[in-house]
């Protein structure tokens, strides 16, 4: 038998003082709001900045002083060569975290909340990317500042550095879409990390990040020469040294455009149909 309903005293507390419906926010506004969310998460979970601050420091110091003498005869000379490479490697690695964040959102139910809102559909992803550009810039700043302290002196000065970082950020923003896509597909963040490291380790090491490919066996050299990371490193190096030619820049722009053209529609398609 049902118990009698005890009707609470204040049944009609009014939650809704207004029926106001503000106008729909612009795509830019909703993307910026979601970027703000990503920044808030950094504020609440500052440990996640470890990857963009401590890892670059460790890598730069390690590679410069462990291998510099052996590879280039002196650590000072090697630093000039390896710093742009480490810069690319570190920032490329950080792109994984955009996908990890997406994967966590899906699992925690925030994802469905956002999907149920009448906002510009890609704003969740674009917002995360805007915040990630901040992380890319932060990691770049850490590496460059430390590099300059250690004696890194690029010939093309500040302008070269800015152009190089701009190109790097552009490429990495396009690359992120792969991990966001996989973040929607894969069941756990751990498996996503495993897959992305499996892709990025060979790509970053089998490139010209640490050494020029001339001494490698022919098969590896030809892989290194078609590796987009190699092209990116070359472009970043030459922009910093002031010797960049259009032939060194356009492959990077082309690769970025291709990544974006393939993975952003694919990701948005999946975003709409995720079950």
């Amino acid at each position: 038998m049902q118990t009698t309903c005890e009707r609470p005293h204040q049944t009609e507390r009014r939650v809704l003082p207004t029926r106001a419906r503000p106008a729909r926010p612009s795509p830019l506004s909703s993307a910026i709001t979601l970027a703000w969310r990503a920044l808030l998460k950094i504020k609440h979970v500052p440990e996640q900045l470890f990857d963009v601050t401590a890892s670059p420091v460790i890598f730069l110091l390690m590679f410069t002083y462990l291998f510099g003498g052996a590879l280039a005869g002196s650590t000072a000379i090697y630093l000039q060569f390896v710093l742009p490479g480490i810069l690319v490697m570190m920032v490329v690695m950080i792109t994984i975290y955009t996908g990890v964040g997406m994967n966590q959102d899906v699992k925690k139910g925030v994802f469905d909340r956002f999907r149920s809102l009448p906002v510009w559909r890609p704003s969740v992803i674009v917002g995360a990317l805007i915040a990630d550009v901040g992380r890319y810039l932060m990691a770049s700043a850490v590496i460059l500042l430390l590099g300059v302290m250690l004696g890194f002196r690029p010939e093309n000065g500040v302008l070269g550095i800015l152009l190089a970082v701009l190109l790097l950020v552009l490429f990495c923003s396009a690359l992120s879409w792969i991990w966001i896509f996989l973040g929607l597909v894969m069941r756990t963040a751990e498996s996503l990390m495993a897959v992305s490291f499996m892709v990025l380790f060979p790509l970053t090491f089998a490139s010209n990040v640490f050494v020029q490919p001339e001494t490698m066996p022919a098969w590896l050299e030809s892989f290194v020469n078609i590796n987009p990371i190699t092209h990116l490193v070359t472009a970043v190096r030459t922009l910093m040294s002031g010797t960049a030619t259009a032939d060194q820049i356009w492959p990077v722009l082309l690769a970025s455009a291709a990544l974006l053209a393939v993975f952003s529609p694919l990701t948005m398609w999946l975003y709409g149909r995720k079950q």
Binding site: R37, L40, K41, H44, V45, K108, G109, V110, D112, R113, S116
Partner: peptide, 13 residues
Amino acid sequence: GLTGQFASVDEDL
């Protein structure tokens, strides 16, 4: 409006 275990808020915020 939607409320449920599947459509929730961000726990970190």
